[in-house]
């Protein structure tokens, strides 16, 4: 059944609000209390970090905890509602972030990061997390 115009508007507004809150929480956790980031991922989440594919919440958290201390500064944030959910009957949204990450002892790098979130119960969880530095591709 085709969604109506008000429904579509409401969905994209919901996605915008979730994206804004999510990006604040995610990067605050990442930069200041990385251990807490675990709760944001679905058990079966996947991550591609600069081409490294990692499956499952525990493995993702292990990978992230091994990264150097970081400070993220966001430049842009956009989001889309997905008309086809990633998990049956759950609302799904996609969030894209662009910004700068400063690791200690190295030059700041620009990065893109894209998340797919699903609403499990009343809570948004990360299904998929894709991170890439803005750099010359591997050759």
């Amino acid at each position: 059944m085709a969604p109506t115009e008000p429904e579509l508007k409401e969905k994209s507004e919901q996605a915008s609000q979730a994206a804004k809150q999510f990006s604040q929480i995610f990067y605050e956790y990442f930069d200041k209390k990385r251990h807490a980031i675990k709760n944001l991922y679905l058990d079966s989440a996947t991550m591609i970090w600069n081409g490294h594919a990692v499956s499952g919440k525990d493995e993702i958290v292990k990978f992230l905890e091994d990264l150097p201390t970081a400070e993220h500064t966001l430049t842009s944030l956009d989001s889309h509602p997905l008309i086809e959910p990633v998990v049956t009957d759950q609302t799904s949204i996609m969030v894209t972030v662009f910004g700068k990450v400063d690791y200690r002892d190295s030059k700041p790098k620009s990065f893109y990061q894209t998340f797919i979130l699903t609403s499990q119960g009343n809570v948004w969880k990360i299904v998929s997390d894709t991170f890439r530095f803005l750099e010359t591709g591997p050759s």
Partner: peptide, 22 residues
């Protein structure tokens, strides 16, 4: 096209999600 780096970040029977950097 030589600058393209592709990440396929979600695959199911009903959905395919991928991103391109370049």
């Amino acid at each position: 096209a030589n600058s393209f780096v592709v990440d396929v970040n979600f695959v199911s029977n009903t959905l395919l999600s991928f991103s391109v950097n370049g």
